[in-house]
Amino acid sequence: MVSNSNSSSEYNRKKNKEEMKQQLITFTLMIVFTLIAFSMVIFEFDKLYVIPVLLILAVVQVIFQLYYFMHMKNKDHEMPAFMFYGGLTVATITILTLSVITWW
């Protein structure tokens, strides 16, 4: 029994370490994305494609944050994902509405 529980905690430790490794890779990528975003603006690249690339970088970085740092990739996160995407849907509609009434 004792050895059994030890091996399971060993297994969990290994699993935690594995997850930590993924999170470190995520962090490195997020730093790289931030550097790209800032340098594109500092070196004054063409506005026409800087803005869409900036937005894409931000979205990817947030996806990393949500799925890896906040564990949304894990199995027991169906309801949290539902809650969050519910909020995100209303958020999108809100920004869309405010943009349309301003610039249409």
Binding site: M79, F84, G86, G87, A91, T92, T94, T97, L98
Partner: peptide
């Protein structure tokens, strides 16, 4: 997580207003 969904909406309205 339900609260975070609400927070997303809150910040979206502030972002929309800012834009």
């Amino acid at each position: 997580w339900f609260f975070l969904g609400g927070e997303t909406v809150l910040f979206a309205s502030l972002f929309g207003t800012y834009l």
